[in-house]
C-alpha cells in the first residue's frame, strides 16, 4: 500500500467510522462485536507466529534439506497452496478427530490458518534467501563458517529485510482469512456478526461496523510492518557501516 492510499484509507475509515457511529445500533452491537474481535486478534497473532515458523522451516528444508525432508517440504507447500483454506480448516476440524486427535476449535483455527499462510510464506522466505548476493555466501566460505553459521549470522539477517513487505501482505491475508473460522463455531468477529444478524436482521449496521473493525485491524498491521521495515533497514545499514 502506498503512503498516499494509506492516507486516503485513513480518511475514508474515519468517515466510515463517523457514519457507523451515528447508527442507532452502534451502542447496542459494538460491545459484543469487540468481544468477537478479541478472538479474531488472538487467532491472527497465533496464526502469524505459527506461519512464520512453518515458513522458515519449510523454506530451509526445501532449499538445503536432504532429499526426504526436501520432498516433505515440497508436499507441504504444494498441498497448502493448492487447496482452499476453508477445505483445510474443515479437514483438520472433521477428519483429524477420526485419527484420535481432537482439538479445541480455536486451536484448529490457528493451526489451519498458520499452516496455510506458512506455505505461501515459505516461497517468500525462499525468494528472499535466494536474493542475497552470491558474494555473501562466498565470504562465509572464505571465513570458514559452516552452513548453519552462515545462514544464521550472514544470510538470514539480510534476507529478513527483503521479507518484511511481502510478510505484511500475508499477515493481512491471514487476518482476512480468520473470518472463515466462524464456520467451525469459533466465536470470532464474523461469528458474532452472523449471530446478531440472525436475531436482529439489522444487516447494514452490523456488517458495516464489522467491516470497519477489520479495516482498522488491517491498517494496524500495515502501519506496524512499515515501522518494522524501517527498523530493520536501519539495523542493516548500521551493520554495513562497521
Amino acid at each position: 500500500m502506498q503512503l498516499r492510499s494509506l492516507t486516503v484509507c485513513a480518511i475514508i475509515a474515519f468517515a466510515a467510522g463517523l457514519i457507523v457511529a451515528s447508527f442507532a445500533g452502534f451502542r447496542e452491537f459494538l460491545p459484543g462485536l469487540l468481544q468477537g474481535a478479541l478472538i479474531t486478534v488472538e487467532i491472527t497473532l497465533g496464526g502469524c507466529v505459527l506461519s512464520v515458523i512453518a515458513a522458515v522451516i519449510a523454506a530451509l528444508a526445501k532449499m538445503y534439506g536432504p532429499w526426504p525432508i526436501r520432498w516433505l517440504a515440497v508436499v507441504y507447500i504444494e498441498i497448502f497452496r493448492g487447496t482452499s483454506a476453508l477445505v483445510q480448516l474443515f479437514w483438520l476440524f472433521f477428519v483429524l478427530p477420526r485419527f484420535g486427535l481432537t482439538m479445541e476449535p480455536l486451536t484448529v483455527a490457528i493451526l489451519a490458518l498458520g499452516l496455510n499462510v506458512g506455505a505461501y510464506g515459505a516461497e517468500v522466505v525462499r525468494g528472499a534467501v535466494a536474493a542475497v548476493p552470491r558474494g555473501q555466501w562466498e565470504a562465509t566460505i572464505a571465513l570458514n563458517m559452516n552452513r548453519a553459521q552462515a545462514l544464521r549470522r550472514i544470510i538470514l539477517p539480510q534476507a529478513v529485510v527483503a521479507m518484511i513487505p511481502p510478510w505484511g501482505n500475508l499477515f493481512i491475508e491471514l487476518l482476512k482469512a480468520t473470518a472463515i473460522v466462524s464456520l467451525i463455531t469459533v466465536a470470532d468477529l464474523a461469528f458474532r456478526a452472523q449471530e446478531m444478524n440472525a436475531t436482529t436482521y439489522r444487516t447494514v449496521e452490523i456488517f458495516s461496523i464489522v467491516l470497519v473493525i477489520y479495516l482498522a485491524m488491517a491498517m494496524l498491521i500495515t502501519i506496524g510492518m512499515r515501522r518494522l521495515e524501517g527498523l530493520a533497514a536501519k539495523g542493516l545499514a548500521r551493520g554495513r557501516s562497521h
Binding site: 500500500m1 492510499s5 486516503v8 484509507c9 475514508i12 475509515a13 466510515a16 493481512i172 487476518l175 482476512k176 482469512a177 480468520t178 473470518a179 472463515i180 466462524s182 464474523a190 456478526a193 456488517f207 464489522v210 467491516l211 477489520y214 479495516l215 488491517a218 491498517m219
Partner: peptide, 10 residues
C-alpha cells in the same frame, strides 16, 4: 483499499 483489506466472507 477498503475491499482489499476486509474479509471476503463478510
Amino acid at each position: 483499499e477498503f475491499i482489499r483489506s476486509t474479509p471476503l466472507l463478510i
